[in-house]
Amino acid sequence: MAAINRDDVAHLARLAHIEMSAEELDRMAGELAVIVDSVKSVSEAAGDDVPATSHPIPLSNVFREDVVGHTFTAEQALSGAPDAAEDRFKVPAILDED
């Protein structure tokens, strides 16, 4: 496994939509390198014959009947919105001019 460097962190920050300053990227790269190094034994712990467990307590087929439940009014739905117009959530332009 490759060590994690500043460019990696910059890429990850873009994927995660967190703006980071150059200084922050450097600091984070250093911290993550240490953490990643400390967890690397995990990849060698289990052989191919060991199945993955994604749920601690196995269950299956947990369903809901197709019956209509409660809804919000538009006012309730928008009550926490940072910005709204015409009963809808308002967001800045989605694409930069292209």
Partner: peptide, 18 residues
Amino acid sequence: SAGYYDAYYGSAQKVRTL
């Protein structure tokens, strides 16, 4: 992320089994 899933997340889920 692509290329790391098996080594990291996938392996960790196996450790869970162990």
